[in-house]
Design a protein around this nucleic acid. Structure first.
Length: 226
DNA sequence: CCCTGATTCGC
DNA sequence: GCGAATCAGG
């Protein structure tokens, strides 16, 4: 398989969306997880929470190594990495909610002024979204009646990959490569690549390693069954 | 063991 | 440029 422009676009999208290299590789098909990672690095979009890189010491601990070196012949210089931290934080979610003034349509499509209780969709109660139906989101902390215009009529048309911009939600709907694949396309939550609703889904606290199977970063309507 | 991403290096 | 092999942490 070769890296067509389309495949690269999908790779970027998914990588940016938080999908793991394995998921991306599986989605793309015909490539390995390593290929995806390698390509991602070559594209310049590496930095992402890596289990291995969390720790950064300056102490140069030499490892005895010398395990049977079948291919290694060159010594490894001490890697000096500039720590990059592009990871978005969730500490300050809703800075300022824009009033619904700009949106002439439905004033309050989300009549759920319940408690601000954070319901974490966990392994068992994983809420999935379909292209047509979306459930009430659980934004980080909506103390007030913020109402971000939900099923706006503006998404009557599908937002394609080419329609993406810094102003629209990039949350993928469906699976890449399929005819109905598109993106959310709603107004973004300022400072985030997604709308308010999808921010709530994209930036949930990472679950313990033991139970992360069902709700991965979970873009794309759901895991593909092949 | 499994998983993850990072890195190297032969091709 | 590509990606398998390898590394290394969780």
């Amino acid at each position: 398989m070769s890296w067509t422009d389309e495949r690269i676009a999908t790779l970027k999208k998914m990588w940016e969306g938080g999908s793991t290299a394995s998921q991306i590789a599986d989605e793309l098909g015909g490539v390995s997880r390593n290929a995806v990672i390698g390509k991602a690095h070559r594209l310049g979009l590496k930095a992402r929470p890596s289990p291995v890189k969390a720790n950064e010491k300056k102490a140069a601990a030499k490892k005895p190594a010398a395990k049977a070196a079948p291919k290694k012949s060159a010594p490894k210089p001490a890697p000096a990495k500039p720590a990059a931290k592009p990871a978005p934080k969730v500490d300050a979610p809703a800075a300022s909610q824009q009033a619904t003034d700009g949106i002439p349509s439905q004033p309050v499509p989300n009549p759920t002024p319940d408690l601000p209780k954070i319901v974490s969709v966990g392994p068992g109660g994983f809420l999935r979204q379909g292209p047509g139906d979306q459930q009430a989101p659980i934004p980080p902390a909506p103390p007030r009646r913020l109402v971000p215009a939900k099923p706006s009529p503006e998404i009557a048309d599908k937002t394609s990959l080419l329609d993406l911009s810094d102003k629209v939600c990039r949350w993928p709907m469906g699976h890449p490569g399929e005819p109905d694949f598109h993106f959310c396309g709603q107004d973004v939550n300022p400072g985030f690549p997604y709308c308010v609703e999808h921010c709530g889904r994209a930036y949930q606290a990472q679950l313990p390693r033991g139970a992360r199977r069902p709700p991965p970063p979970l873009p794309f309507g759901g895991p593909r069954v092949r």
